[in-house]
Design a protein around this nucleic acid. Sequence first.
DNA 1: CGCGACGTTGATTTGCCTCAACGATTGTGG
DNA 2: CCACAATCGTTGAGGCAAATCAACGTCGCG
Lengths: 195, 195
Amino acid sequence: MESAKQLLNYISKHVNLTEKEELVLLSKVNHRKYLKGQYLVQQGDVCKYTSFVISGCTKMFYMDNEGQEHIAMFSIKDWWSSDLGSFITQTPADYNIQCIENTEVFQFPHHTQEELFKEIPKLERFFRIILEKALVASQKRIIRNFSLTAKERYLNFKNLYPTIEQRVPQYMIASYLGITKEFLSKIKSKLILEQ
Amino acid sequence: MESAKQLLNYISKHVNLTEKEELVLLSKVNHRKYLKGQYLVQQGDVCKYTSFVISGCTKMFYMDNEGQEHIAMFSIKDWWSSDLGSFITQTPADYNIQCIENTEVFQFPHHTQEELFKEIPKLERFFRIILEKALVASQKRIIRNFSLTAKERYLNFKNLYPTIEQRVPQYMIASYLGITKEFLSKIKSKLILEQ
DNA sequence: CGCGACGTTGATTTGCCTCAACGATTGTGG
DNA sequence: CCACAATCGTTGAGGCAAATCAACGTCGCG
């Protein structure tokens, strides 16, 4: 499927745009390809775009004072990738977003957002719906992090995101789960012994 | 301030409604008072309303298989309180929402939401903005939980929500922070010794 | 008064981290 | 085609943050 079609198809699952509206939309987003290792956003920069991932994979992470990387989320096909806090306030980002594969995206620029919503009010609705879902997922994750052990969190992750578990290096999964790579390794070897 | 004014005042910080729109809005929300201990939502019920808190305080919590309570959030004046996951899909709630003080709210019923957005499209925008902020806060909390120690999380909480820290029992704050009441007690006594 | 709700303190245990050494695999330049 | 470094994962010894369990203190209130 052509990438523009993929974006429109995704949007059509939530709101129905006319052909004219679709053209307006496409005229206001940028299509862009990144290589593995490149950054969409760097900590300290202002996040100018909200990116919709067509293919590939990104990680969003926070680098703490000790230089440790904490992965907040991965984004693959049909997911969004941006430092939302930085994007909406147009202030320096707390997070980095880096491609861990060659990645193709559509970017919604901040400076055209108001125009876009004015010309296509349905998109206001679209983003409300997307945000609702994202917030629900985020709140569930908070609870999981408190009420589950590391082993349970790993099994839950495997279950929720089997595709990601297969293509992402283990040390990044460990970071996402909030544990060390060594400990994840031990969890996995125990799991193998158990069954 | 009269409670309806408080709601309208809060909304006016994000979108400008006409007087007529304000009247429509007020005709579609319920004003309601709860006593300390009463539930807005119980785990297993469908969450029919999104509630805007006028006064008092609620806690949203998840009860795990061991019967342990995990507090996901507190809501005070000018905050929202609902199990969003249950509300948007109209399926049984994962969380309980209980008043820990006598609490006054305005409730936005799910069954009038579509009408409301149709009659007042600006509200679609309003909720998009609210959701953006909530999502940013939620993502920040995930990172904090991973990158900070219990002591740092407690200090951060005190700093972010001084009002809540003062009026809520310690064992609930411990639950929100993801630690035991005993350990929070030890953190606090150490902090007193230190300065 | 006595009971229930809340908070404290200490002894012990445990889940997970740190550090350090050691494979396995891949890629790259000579 | 080999050497060797880089990247990623594994394993073990020891340590620490936080949980668990149990006992006790305190306050408000019927």
